[in-house]
């Protein structure tokens, strides 16, 4: 959909992660292109979150490699680079949206400080400037500017999730990892959050890796899908193709299990 540069943003080859005898995920390979939203779907325990952890530099894989091409066009092996660089990457070019906003937010400090943290980590030292950017981002994620000094504890689940998104996007990342961003939200709030995500992803040209068990969320956001089961990718393809004409028996089961209202 976007004017694509010829090089993939993320190149994953033969990625496996074992927990002792137990398989987290096995032999996963794919490319993620700039501006693409990749959905990873599957039932609970199918290795989605393990895979996301391995991709986002938080969980050492047992085998395989993850190559990331940075803003300057330089390619980095995520697990071969020093941890210092990996952290810098993770807080500037990447974003991670956790399923539970409490994992991704600093609950003890105000919403404004949460949004400003990445800016300050990158060297912003002007209070007024940081605050203005925080206000700007709160507006973008539809949080009332008057709540900037409130603790995220006083926010509703949907607001916390939106705050978490603002906190990640403030550094203008290129790649965002999302783990069930709409999990635990009621459907109307989910719908608003999905609209918001779709708009921001489009506006910023973000690449997203989206883990979800909710096929409706995948349908709305993802361009391409990986269907996982038992730690392996059993089917991959364009979202509409996978959902409308699933080939693998498990995908067929998954699609046919969607509740119709």
């Amino acid at each position: 959909m976007n004017a694509q540069s010829p090089q993939p943003l993320l190149t994953v080859r033969g990625l496996s992660r074992y927990y002792g005898q137990h398989v987290g995920c096995r032999d996963i390979s794919f490319d993620l292109w700039p501006g693409e939203v990749l959905g990873i779907v599957g039932e609970s325990g199918s290795g989605k979150t393990t895979l996301l952890g391995c991709l986002s530099g938080r969980l050492d894989p047992s085998e395989g490699s993850v190559l990331y091409r940075d803003r300057a066009g330089q390619s980095h092996d995520v697990y071969a680079m020093p941890e210092m660089m990996r952290r810098r990457l993770a807080r500037s070019e990447w974003g991670i949206v956790h399923q539970n906003p409490r994992d991704g937010l600093r609950m003890a400090v105000s919403a404004g400080a949460n949004v400003g943290e990445r800016l300050m980590a990158q060297g912003a030292r002007h209070y007024g400037g940081i605050r203005n950017q925080a206000l700007d981002w709160l507006d973008k994620v539809e949080i009332d500017a008057g709540r900037i000094d409130d603790s995220p504890r006083t926010f509703s689940g949907g607001m916390q999730q939106r705050l978490q998104i603002a906190r990640n996007l403030v550094s203008m990342p290129r790649l965002v990892f999302m783990d069930e961003p709409t999990g635990g939200l009621d459907v109307s709030v989910q719908a608003r959050l999905l609209d918001l995500l779709r708009r921001l992803v489009g506006e910023m040209g973000l690449s997203v890796i989206l883990v979800t068990h909710d096929l409706a969320v995948a349908r709305l956001l993802a361009h391409r899908l990986l269907v996982m089961r038992g730690g392996e990718v059993v089917e991959s393809g364009l979202t509409d193709q996978v959902l409308d004409d699933p080939q693998h028996p498990y995908s067929q089961l998954l699609v046919s299990s969607i509740l119709q209202v």
Partner: peptide, 22 residues
């Protein structure tokens, strides 16, 4: 310890920010 080793100190200013905001 890692934060010291990597000079990853953004969080320190979060505290000061919070002071000014309050």
């Amino acid at each position: 310890r890692k934060m010291h080793a990597f000079a990853d100190y953004g969080i320190m200013h979060v505290k000061l920010y919070e002071d000014i905001a309050r």
